[in-house]
């Protein structure tokens, strides 16, 4: 059981007595806003390495949340400091989601990385991104030889948004709306109006800034280590992305878990009956991350 240790009002921490790891939650300033950040710190006072985790968006944000927490706890136990955060306009952070575009996502990630390095004392840094946040992780790490890990990465922005808009069209069919089409939704976005997808606001700024982006362009060069974890199956476009990354001199590791994830809707009856954090899948991801950091020489 973890015990509470109340620090200054804006910053609280607790220590896990079984591992000695510290979890420190705080708000950090980014522009005019405050970004909610949780640092997972190894028991020793200074970590050599630090990982910054960029979370996915919309329905995928809560779906992946606990997995990120458990991976962060495990890596901290193994000596790697991990910092997780909510982008401006997302989760507990302040800010207007309508202003969220690629530039602002990168700015958030880099500011958090600077605080993460200062807090943990780490001398080397890696980024992680899940789904669309792979773009953020890749772009934030560009210009340096930082390792990047990616879970179920989105390879092309246009494909991701097509899937999101398709979800909205399925909702329209369910609700008996007859005037919703891919064209009308794209028109809304390009004319500056947000689209409501299952209760999540997709804003034009995010759509337009990421629609034409591709992950391999954001990843490199320069040469770096990347880890790609696919959930349940290896997608063809991910295979091609890895090939292009290898051509550019990156070193890629691919892992495929035995279980898949349904990101937007529960598409299998069994989804309801498994524990909240999908223990088998999460366990595999934890082990994969652990092994990759060991390969990098970051953990003992």
């Amino acid at each position: 059981m973890m015990h509470t240790d109340r620090g200054a009002d804006t910053r609280v921490q607790r220590v896990d007595p079984s591992t000695g790891c510290v979890e420190l939650a705080e708000f950090i300033d980014v522009g005019q806003d405050l970004v909610y950040t949780v640092h997972h710190l190894p028991p020793s006072s200074r970590a050599g390495h630090s990982l910054v985790m960029c979370s996915p968006f919309f329905a995928e944000f809560p779906r992946n949340y606990r997995r990120e927490v458990l991976v962060a706890r495990r890596l901290a136990e193994r000596g790697v400091a991990v910092t997780r955060f909510h982008h401006r306009g997302v989760g507990n952070s302040t800010g207007d989601a309508a202003l969220m575009g690629l530039d602002r996502l990168i700015e958030d990630a880099r500011r958090v990385a600077a605080v993460a390095a200062e807090t943990s004392g780490a001398h080397s840094l890696a980024f992680h991104g899940t789904r669309l946040a792979g773009f953020t992780a890749a772009a934030a790490a560009i210009g340096a030889q930082m390792p990047v890990s990616l879970w179920e990465p989105v390879v092309r922005g246009s494909k991701y948004f097509n899937e999101v808009l398709r979800t909205r069209m399925v909702q329209a069919v369910h609700d008996g709306e007859t005037d919703v089409s891919a064209g009308s939704l794209r028109h809304e976005l390009t004319s500056g109006a947000p689209v409501d997808v299952l209760g999540h606001s997709l804003h034009p700024e995010l759509y337009t800034s990421l629609h034409d982006q591709t992950l391999d362009e954001l990843l490199g060069p320069p040469a770096r280590e990347i880890l790609v974890v696919e959930f349940g199956r290896k997608r063809k476009d991910v295979g091609r992305m890895i090939e292009r990354a290898l051509e550019q001199g990156l070193t890629a590791t691919l892992a495929v878990s035995t279980e898949s994830e349904s990101w937007w809707v529960a598409n299998r009856r069994a989804d309801y009956f498994v524990a909240e954090e999908r223990r088998q899948l999460t366990g595999e991801v934890v082990r994969t991350m652990d092994a990759w950091f060991e390969k990098l020489g970051w953990t003992a």
Binding site: M2, T4, D5, R6, D9, T10, R11, V12, Q13, R14, E23, A25, E26, F27, L34, Y36, G89, N92, T94, D96, A97, A98, P194, D196, S201, H203
Partner: peptide
């Protein structure tokens, strides 16, 4: 759409994380 739904309020709000 994602902003506050209520008109401007008189009080400034501060969020503080806590562990209980």
């Amino acid at each position: 759409m994602d902003g506050m739904t209520i008109e401007a309020r008189p009080q400034r709000v501060t969020d503080r994380p806590a562990f209980i």
